[in-house]
Design a protein around this nucleic acid. Structure first.
Lengths: 336, 336
DNA sequence: TTGAAAGCGATACCAA
DNA sequence: TTGGTATCGCTTTCAA
């Protein structure tokens, strides 16, 4: 293995000079700078990450705690992960991927062994058991989601409450009086997952203010699950004319069901989906949707992390405003 | 930060003894063992990962190179990632996640800076440009996929050639003479992605041997894309009675299309899907499928990596035999 | 503008 | 069964 001393020797300088050439932390004469660069190139020198971490107390690695469950598959999660890895690289950081499975212990492990400089935590729950552990860490932490008590940690997310309000308002303005909310799988609510509970809450409040009826049911991500969910919604609301879908996995199934019944969108049923735009566009009828801006959120999460690594003390909080894009899956209710 | 010397002092032993207690690399008397353990516990000591890496030349981190593209979303990839992270943890390793975007440079960076002990590379192409770089690394490498030239690297994958053969045989035995292959998105073939080209190849050979007609078209993962793909297949095969689907993203759309046409499965069209079992089960009609055993493959990849880290010299190669599960989406062709 | 050298916090060899 | 200590490769302070 070629070390910094090898480079120094080859360039006829001291190791510290090589280090400074690399870090740019002190002025170097053009002449030596070139000689060092050549030596590095010629020897194929790469700084040893462990040695660097030991000497500098910086690893240039972020931990990303992601909900990798064996059962639930969520494409949106991939978008977050992709965005965060890509953005982290733009800031010269790598990403260590942790699952939820280890819980607070895993977080503690990578943080207190100094494997990472900072942590980004996805899929935060309202009363997340990991928050106390996170709050005591030396490293900066950014949560994706807004728990009830953030314990002074930075948070970023889409304003799901406002998103639900936007959806309900939009449908109400089209004349719908009974709206179904096709929710995420039941387990998501049982965990108190931040985004889902906030969306539900926002929807209920909006419905109350608008004086429309809103029925909500969790929905498993299968055809069967959707059928059951719809049945339940329709037994609660006899004149169901519109749905808000907070579960991109069942959009395809929803169209199958409607087609089997001979119903069309939006003539018989209006739909507002909360999902990434590509999912909304890939359906038989392009869906009116509220974008889940996973890429933007990931980028902001990384930005907040970097701010804190750069010395910023106070935690930041960012709630992105939702935007509804009308694509034609909303119309007036059939019986009007 | 509490270091190994602090623990040593607190326990009244030398730092090396603490190290040996932790590693178990030499016998320690029960008495000191307990004293050290107590000191560790009391002080909340955590070995510094960087220091450890520097001294031992081991990071206990694996690199996972995954196809995280902003455009394409594939749930199967999540299953691989989940499996690999989970299995790596069972072997006391963490996972550093890299995208394809950086190409060979990213691989070189993490490998030659000694950030990782080994690499697992997903989504390998037939002529993968990263293979030369991978072959020169000090660290063990395991590929998921079988490139044309593996350069002495370990490989693991489902036998997609056999999978296609299995599907074609199954349909041919039901009496189908014209079979459509709904492929992955075009970009996947343009890259020469190992699994897709092997499946296509196996399907063509099997069709030839069985004397049935096989038409293949790539398919974009949208409703529109599927419609176009089906049109093309049907214009090539006028008596198309069965399809093999190597694109789980369009299964939902496929049912929508059939329902719109008033066609049923398997009465009008037989389907064999190549996808994870949960996807096959979540459709309006449970699909006869050939399982993509992502979890098993991930586990094997990690196992191969660990074998090599344990000193095994020769690369290993594992091609998993496909298994077809009949769930009722295959029947006899309508006109028979 | 550059060099020398003291750490950083472990591991593992050599002794005892 | 245990201790002392050189060593890993880099960063950074102190001097020149």
């Amino acid at each position: 293995m070629v070390s910094i001393s090898d480079v120094a020797r080859a360039a006829g300088v001291s190791p510290s000079t090589v280090s400074y050439v690399l870090s740019g932390k002190r002025p170097i004469s053009p002449a030596t700078s070139v000689r060092v660069a050549e030596a590095i190139e010629r020897l194929g020198y790469r700084p040893h990450a462990g040695a660097r971490a030991l000497a500098s107390s910086r690893t240039n690695v972020l931990a990303l705690v992601a909900p990798l469950r064996v059962d639930v598959v969520v494409p949106v999660i991939m978008q977050f992960v992709t965005s965060i890895v890509t953005c982290a690289r733009e800031h010269d950081h790598d990403v260590l991927l942790l699952t939820h499975d280890e819980g607070p212990a895993g977080i503690d492990r990578v943080a207190s062994s100094a494997m990472v400089d900072a942590l980004v935590v996805m899929d935060v729950a309202d009363e997340d058991p990991r928050i106390p552990a996170l709050a005591t860490l030396r490293q900066p932490v950014v949560l994706i989601g807004f728990p009830h008590h953030s314990a002074g940690l930075s948070c970023v997310d889409l304003d799901f409450r406002a998103a639900a309000r936007l959806a309900v308002d939009h449908l109400a303005e089209h004349g719908h009086r009974q709206i179904g909310l096709i929710g995420a799988p039941a387990a998501v609510y049982e965990r108190g997952t931040s985004y889902a509970t906030r969306l539900l809450d926002g929807g209920r409040r909006a419905a109350q203010e608008r004086r429309v009826e809103l029925a909500w049911r969790p929905c498993e991500p299968t055809y069967e699950g959707l059928v059951r969910c719809l049945d339940q919604l329709e037994s609660e609301l006899t004149e169901l004319t519109a749905v808000v879908v907070n579960n991109e996995a069942v959009l395809g199934a929803l169209f199958s069901v409607l087609q089997a019944r001979g119903q069309r969108v939006p003539d018989h049923l209006s739909i507002v989906a909360v999902c990434p735009p590509d999912v909304a566009l890939g359906q038989p009828v392009p869906l009116t949707s509220i974008d889940i801006p996973a890429h933007a959120l990931g980028a902001i999460a990384v930005e907040l992390v970097m701010n804190q690594l750069a010395g910023q003390r106070d935690p930041e909080t960012r709630l992105l405003a939702p935007k509804l894009t009308e694509r034609g899956s909303c119309g007036t209710p059939p019986h009007v």
